[in-house]
Design a protein around this nucleic acid. Structure first.
Lengths: 213, 213
DNA sequence: GACAAGGTCTATGTATACATAACTGCGGCT
DNA sequence: AGCCGCAGTTATGTATACATAGACCTTGTC
C-alpha cells in the first residue's frame, strides 16, 4: 500500500468518524509526524480530501476540516433526492429484475440484523450498501454514479452525527425494501416516489435528532 | 501564480482544446520539462486532473488523457438533464426576477453576437456563462452547483468536438432565452421543461455532427 | 518458433533540503 | 491609545536526490 493512500485513508476515516472536528487545522508537518510518513504523501492526501470537499484550503495557513451546517444537510438532501430519484427510476428501467427481487427479500429480513449483538450495525449497513451498488451498476451511467459517490462521503458524516436508533433503522429497512420492490417491478415512477419518501423521512429523522447545529 | 496552478491550467486547457488527444500519456518528467517547472507541481496538477476525470491513472505507467465515447456523451447529458432541470426549477422559485428578466432580454439580442467578426463566439459564450452563473447563484445550493461545475468541464470538451455552427447557435440562444423567461416568471415546471427541450436539441445536434466516434 | 522467466531500465513514489510568502508580535509613529 | 509598518518566525511551495516497482526486452528452453 502506498504511503499516500495510507495517509488519505487515515485522514478521511478520522474526519468521517468525527475524530477530527470541523475547524481543525491539518498542518503538513504535524500530520506527517502523526502518520509516520513524509510531507509529500500527506500533501497529496490533503489535496484529495480538499477535492472531495472534506477539507478546504484556508488560504496560506494549512487546510481545515470543513463544517456541516444545517443548511448543508438541506442542500445535500436536495441534491440527493434529485440524483437518487433519477437513479432509482433508471434502475427500474434498465436493471435486472432478479437482482432487486433478491435485495427486496433480504431487506424484508433485515429486521433481524438490527439487534444488540452488533451495535455498529455493520451487516445492516453492508446490505444497504449492496442496494446502492446494485443501483449504481443498473443505471450504467458512470457520471451519475460518480456524482452519487461524491455525495455519499458527506452523507456518511451526517449519518454518524444522527445516531440512528433501532426504530428508525427498522423503518428505513422497510423503505429500502419498497425501493427495491419498485425497481424489481420495473416501475420507474414508483421507484422514484419510494426514494423520495425514504429521503424525506431520513432528513426528518436527522433534523429531529439534531435540531441545533 | 503558483507553478502548480500554471501546470494545472495549461494541461487542462490543452486537454479541453483537444491539443492533447485522448490516450496521450502524460509522463511527469516530460511535462515538467515542457512546462518549465519541476515534477512536484506537475504531479499535483495531474492529481487534480484525474480527480476531475480529465485524465485517469493508468496503473503504474503514468496518467493518460481520457477518451469521450458516444456512450459518455449520452451519460453526460442524462446527468445534465437531471441536474440542470432541477437547477432551473429551483432558480424559478428562489431566483431574483430582475436578474433573469435582464438575461432574457440580453439573450434575445444575442443573435447580433453571432457574426463573422468573432469566430470563437467569445461574447456569446460569455453571455451563456452569465446565465449559468445566475442560476448557480439563485439555487443557493453549493452541492448542486458543485456537481454542475464538475460536469461542465467535460461538456466544454464535447462542445469543442461538436463545432457549433451559426444556425445552431441562433436556435440555442432562443432556447436559453426561453429558460431565462420561465425562471423570471417563477414558473418552475416551465423552466424545467425549457431546459429539457434545450438539452435534447443540443444532444441531437452533437450526435448529428458526430455520428461516429 | 513460441512461451516463460529473469534482468535491466525507466517510470512513478517518497523523502528531504531549500525558497518563499504569509501571519504574528513588537515597536515606533501619529 | 490606536494604528501602521517592519522584522522574525513558521508555515506552505518547489526542486531534487534517492527508493522502488512495474514494464519491456532479451535469452533460454521446450
Amino acid at each position: 500500500m502506498r504511503a499516500s493512500d495510507k495517509a488519505y485513508a487515515t485522514l478521511r476515516e478520522d474526519i468521517i468518524e468525527w475524530r477530527l472536528a470541523p475547524g481543525t487545522v491539518l498542518a503538513e508537518v504535524e500530520q506527517s509526524e502523526r502518520l509516520g510518513v513524509s510531507r509529500t504523501p500527506v500533501r497529496e492526501a490533503l489535496s484529495r480530501l480538499s477535492a472531495e470537499g472534506l477539507t478546504t484550503a484556508a488560504g496560506g495557513r494549512g487546510v481545515v476540516v470543513t463544517d456541516i451546517s444545517l443548511e448543508d444537510i438541506d442542500e445535500m438532501f436536495e441534491l440527493r433526492e434529485t440524483l437518487e430519484g433519477k437513479a432509482a427510476a433508471l434502475a427500474a428501467v434498465r436493471g435486472e429484475r432478479a437482482v432487486f427481487e433478491k435485495l427486496h427479500a433480504d431487506l424484508l429480513r433485515a429486521q433481524e440484523l438490527i439487534n444488540d449483538a452488533d451495535p455498529a450495525r455493520h451487516e445492516y449497513y453492508a446490505l444497504v450498501g449492496r442496494l446502492d451498488e446494485a443501483i449504481d451498476a443498473a443505471i450504467s451511467n458512470s457520471y451519475l454514479a460518480q456524482a452519487m459517490r461524491s455525495l455519499r462521503v458527506h452523507l456518511v458524516r451526517v449519518r454518524r452525527l444522527a445516531a440512528d436508533d433501532a426504530p428508525r433503522l427498522h423503518a428505513a429497512a422497510v423503505e429500502h425494501a419498497a425501493i427495491a420492490e419498485a425497481i424489481a417491478a420495473g416501475n420507474a415512477r414508483l421507484a422514484e416516489a419510494a426514494t423520495t419518501m425514504h429521503l424525506h423521512r431520513s432528513l426528518s429523522h436527522v433534523k429531529a435528532t439534531h435540531p441545533h447545529h
